[in-house]
């Protein structure tokens, strides 16, 4: 399997198939992220297209200096917030999360709805890092690069988020101790 760097190099040379491979490799990851930021399927699809259009504009001549997720995350976040402000200017991040939790609770057990409620209680910067780590499967270094904050800040925010969850009786079951 070709690496992201190899695919980018091929796409820089005009290889549309390389871009297609890259697209299908990260399409679902990007869509899940846009869905989480916008809380709306139509907006999420718009952001998905705009994100890859942004990547296209970088070609040719794009140099991948970090991981692909590190590059894509701030792009998706910025476009998502822009689209959300444009389409639904009064919806906050917490309200978007509530919409997601509400739609999820329709076909998921109550315990996951409980989890959504617990997440809404976290400060936004802690929740963001928690989700980047456990949903987006990003490493600490990738989170640090994507958010352009020190690695120590990432670790401390994640620690505090987990500490809060541990203190919450509704999330206590997720901890082994």
């Amino acid at each position: 399997m070709e690496s992201d760097e190899e695919l980018i190099e091929s796409a820089n040379k005009g290889d549309a198939e390389a871009f297609e491979t890259l697209y299908y490799r990260y399409r679902d990851w990007v869509f899940r992220l846009t869905w989480r930021f916008t809380g709306n399927r139509e907006d999420a699809l718009d952001v998905l297209q705009e994100t890859f259009a942004y990547l296209l504009k970088k070609l040719p001549g794009f140099q991948l200096t970090a991981s692909m997720t590190t590059f894509l995350y701030p792009v998706v976040k910025h476009i998502s917030l822009t689209v959300r402000r444009r389409s639904r200017p009064h919806v906050s991040a917490e309200e978007a999360l509530s919409e997601i939790a509400a739609s999820a609770s329709e076909d998921t057990p109550d315990v996951r709805a409980e989890l959504a409620a617990v997440l809404r209680g976290l400060p936004e910067e802690q929740r963001e890092i928690l989700l980047m780590r456990f949903v987006d499967d990003m490493s600490m270094e990738e989170i640090s690069s994507a958010l352009n904050i020190p690695l120590g800040t990432v670790k401390s925010r994640l620690h505090n988020a987990l500490h809060r969850l541990r203190q919450n009786h509704r999330a206590r079951d997720y901890f082994l101790e």
Partner: peptide, 16 residues
């Protein structure tokens, strides 16, 4: 000390 279920439930919650 986090249970793997935490990650599973989060992914289910945020899966479109």
């Amino acid at each position: 000390g986090l249970s793997p279920k935490f990650s599973e439930d989060l992914n289910t919650l945020f899966k479109p």
